[in-house]
């Protein structure tokens, strides 16, 4: 009997695929096209060949943005280490431990815009940080934290880490709770001390979570915007010190109306995220195979 094509699965898929097609797949194709044009969104795009890419190659701000985005990736290993330690700390039966977990989670749900502006107040010349450091005698006069090019990126990265702590901690905590207790008992019998036991049991046991957090937090780092926007008041910092790939994309497309040029930046960003995700997943998978 010839098999009749069953339409049911396709009907179930249709609405979601339509949305993803229109708002993700089509935009990728459109951005590829726009990147070869001069386009201000209002008037029709004009084909200019490779000009945008040539301009990109000679654009110092673009290279700075690229460099800044790569520097920003440092948040990923820091988050992994801090959050595993934090998860180990809260993975014990103490009275009130749930309250602590909940408190650590508050920044995650508060949202990066609100929290970003709160941090901007803290680091204001007249903010709490200067007040505290002055009264402790650690500094002689107020520091202009957010007007110091060398500090823009580190402060934004600290904010990203602070925002992510609770979220990634919870992921690692869930992972820890899946590790069978017997493995820890065996490690103790083998003579492991408290720290060794985590190194030999917890860390290998958390491999899937580490892969997940590495990929997710690296993507988030490459796509960072809100932290830079709030801390620099939407300007990108003195001397573009806080300008990342996405910030530059946004500025070119929506502040300067250079949508064609911004599309070329978007293509560069896409290639980088692609390469990075492949390398990230590959290397972490290889790590698992060696187990």
């Amino acid at each position: 009997m010839p098999k009749k094509l069953n339409l049911t699965p396709y009907l179930f898929l249709a609405p979601a695929l339509l949305v993803i097609g229109v708002f993700i797949l089509y935009p990728i194709l459109a951005v590829i096209y726009y990147s070869f044009t001069e386009y201000d969104i209002v008037t029709a795009p004009v084909w200019i060949g490779l000009k945008n890419y040539q301009q990109l190659w000679n654009d110092e701000v673009f290279w700075l943005a690229l460099r800044n985005s790569f520097v920003y990736l440092l948040v990923t290993p820091i988050l992994i280490v801090l959050c595993i330690l934090l998860a180990i700390a809260v993975n014990r039966k103490l009275p009130g431990i749930n309250a602590f977990r909940a408190i650590y989670y508050v920044p995650v749900i508060s949202g990066s815009i609100a929290v970003g502006y709160a941090w901007r107040m803290l680091f204001d010349t007249n903010g709490l940080i200067n007040g505290a450091l002055l009264s402790l005698g650690l500094i002689k006069e107020s520091i202009q934290w957010l007007a110091e090019p060398a500090l823009t990126l580190p402060i934004a990265m600290a904010l990203t880490i602070w925002l992510g702590l609770g979220y990634y901690m919870m992921i690692f905590l869930a992972g820890l709770q899946n590790i069978p207790e017997e493995l820890y008992d065996a490690a103790l019998i083998d003579g492991c001390n408290g720290i060794q036991k985590h190194w030999y049991v917890s860390v290998p046991g958390l491999r899937p979570q580490i892969t997940f957090v590495a990929v997710i937090s690296a993507l988030a780092a490459l796509e960072v915007f809100n932290e830079i926007y709030t801390l620099t008041g939407g300007l990108g910092g003195i001397l573009n010190s806080g300008v990342t790939m996405v910030f530059y994309l946004w500025k070119q497309a929506f502040k300067l109306q250079h949508a064609g040029y911004a599309s070329a930046i978007a293509m560069a960003l896409l290639v980088i995220t692609l390469l990075f995700s492949i390398v990230n997943i590959r290397s972490l998978e290889r790590g698992t195979e060696q187990e």
Binding site: F23, I24, P27, L222, F225, L270, T273
Partner: peptide, 21 residues
């Protein structure tokens, strides 16, 4: 579908803006 997961959402905002207007 899984592959689109790594597409930066900000990339889609340029065509998205044109679609919206």
């Amino acid at each position: 579908l899984l592959a689109t997961f790594i597409v930066p959402p900000q990339l889609t905002y340029i065509p998205g803006f044109v679609l919206a207007r």
